[in-house]
Design a protein around this nucleic acid. Structure first.
Lengths: 339, 339
DNA sequence: TTGTAAGCGTTATCAT
DNA sequence: ATGATAACGCTTACAA
């Protein structure tokens, strides 16, 4: 309890060396003899000593911490977009390997990343996951750049912007829709948001459109259903499609959650998946394998994504040039598309 | 980029006061005149100043950071037990409200001195989520106590241990199994691990046993299937049950993941859920609402859990006495149990 | 109410 | 290779 923590002076005394030598020994400085290093480590272990990271950070000016800001709450019960979970896990793992501490924060809507939260000096850089709106995000990001805080954002991939890492959304969607067409589907509904406030979804729409075009199919506005990325949204969108008598034999959703909602509504209305309607989602949430039928989907490679994000941030912190990264996706065929 | 950060001395000079006054003004000390406070804030804003948190932490010895250590990897793809996700989210939210930064770390198996206790000075206290084995956990926890590091663990609730917060596992299981019995089920299989290495699962078994006993049913060892908390485990366990010709009309699983696996195997083998076999899980993962049929389950209240964990840690940090907390569960009846 | 000055526990810069 | 000693930027007695 009230035990005073040992300092490097205590270790020095026990090991019979100076405090400076203790510091050197513990920070792997080559300028210290094996014999002394051994004695120091022994003493440290004996006293259960660990370096005071705050003193170290203050003095060395290296913080060795990155912050992950998650700013997309789906709803009350799901404070985090489920896709971000394995991504966060992968970031924690890889950043840990690289020796970074990771601060995680759920951002409120209102927060302006730079000022309100004041990450300055708490982290060497920021990884941004999720944004409600593209313009809003741009404004906030500029604030960060203004104060010289390195940051990377997940999602869209912009040609000029090194701080952007995202999946190859257009290609992933293209492959999914192409697969549906190969299965003989001709009237493929698009569930998603093609607005400009989420460029990554826009990219998925482009992939959808290209697949249709290249196969001689035209885009039918009646098959475009606007929805965001919740299960309820997907359910409502498909219900709306059915209600207005749209004729479709497949559904491509820009995320797994709405795809699952879509399947549930279809089944409830007596349409068999995949016999009557094929369904493909996007993300490959772990729950995709839990539905009946199991959901076919476009997997985003969270491990590669995490590496790209952390590596990019790493280089920005070191003031090295950074290129935007487009992470390949992979079509996972399960039962819901029927082949 | 290479701009040198302003210090409180710079603010002091600009505002025409001493550095100490700047510190006081910025840390909301009452002992500072409104006029001066205004000048200081103005100067700070003008120079884009923020306090160096590391210097502050070093000097004040208040770190205002808690660390969440997650040490249960289900497998490669799921680095985090899905139940911990909303719990982590709730912790991030509530701890943020309380003004704490949150360091999150996925713990590797390796139980080295520096790894386990390295967080000691980085955080005021530790929240431990998941442990591979009870004895292993006890060993680590004692080490933490030895160095005077406050910690709380999620899971088991031990009478004497203030640092334990968990669901009322026995009661939750009792209610679930009682519900099955009310529905007319008599041969209820138990999917889980009743070993001593996870006391919380042991508690769920006790609730199962009590419900049977109170309803005049006896425990049939043939209906006890050992499994851990993955979907694959649950699938294998039920497959085993069927293979050895066990006669059962319901399944109670100690977690949703094995419950989902169980449902999938049952359906694949031509048994209808819930007509032939009722299934109830435990956790209420968000995916529970995505299965067909939707999974009935025992919900753990992650919001209340997070509050209890953070509040307890808070009090331990402040050296106040802490009582163990048992968070109530709630039976969520969906389709998989048939009523 | 404000200023002065003494640390907090490191790392970095000199010497030796 | 090691030892003094000076920062790092802040908080907090203690004085005024």
């Amino acid at each position: 309890m009230g035990v005073k923590r040992p300092t490097s002076f205590d270790i020095a005394a026990l090991a019979g060396v100076s405090q400076a030598t203790v510091s050197r020994a513990l920070s792997q400085s080559p300028a210290v003899s094996e014999e002394v290093r051994r004695r120091v480590f022994e003493a440290a272990q004996q006293l259960n000593y660990t370096v005071d990271v705050n003193a170290r950070k203050l003095r060395s000016k290296k913080i060795n911490t990155i912050a992950v800001l998650i700013s997309e709450d789906l709803d009350q019960d799901n404070p985090i977009n489920p896709f971000f979970v394995p991504l966060l896990g992968a970031i924690l793992k890889y950043a840990g390997q690289k020796g970074y501490d990771v601060l995680t924060s759920l951002q409120q809507q209102s927060a302006s990343w730079s000022n309100d939260y004041g990450f300055a000096r708490r982290a060497d850089g920021l990884i941004l996951l999720g944004y409600k709106d593209y313009d809003d995000y741009v404004r906030k990001a500029e604030g960060l750049s203004d104060i010289g805080e390195p940051w990377v954002v997940w999602g869209l991939v912009q040609p000029g912007a090194g701080h952007s890492v995202g999946s190859d959304n257009a290609q992933g969607a293209y492959e999914a829709v192409s697969h549906l067409i190969r299965l003989g589907r001709r009237r493929i509904a698009f569930l998603g948001e093609a607005s400009s406030s989420h460029p990554e979804f826009r990219d998925r729409y482009d992939g959808y459109a290209r697949a249709l075009r290249e196969n001689g199919l035209s885009i039918d506005d009646d098959l475009l259903a606007d929805c965001f990325i919740s299960r309820e949204d997907g359910a409502a969108a498909v219900a709306g499609l059915i209600a207005r008598g749209a004729n479709f034999d497949a559904v491509f959703a820009t995320a797994d959650l709405p795809a699952i909602g879509a399947m549930q509504v279809l089944q409830k209305q007596g349409r068999r998946v995949p016999q009557d309607v094929s369904v493909i989602g996007f993300d490959d949430l772990w729950a995709a394998a839990c539905t009946t039928p199991a959901l076919s989907t476009v997997r985003q490679d969270t491990t590669a994504a995490a590496r790209a994000l952390v590596d990019a941030l790493d280089r920005m912190i070191a003031n090295e040039p950074v290129e935007p990264v487009r992470v390949p996706t992979r079509l996972i065929v399960r039962e819901s598309c029927g082949g």
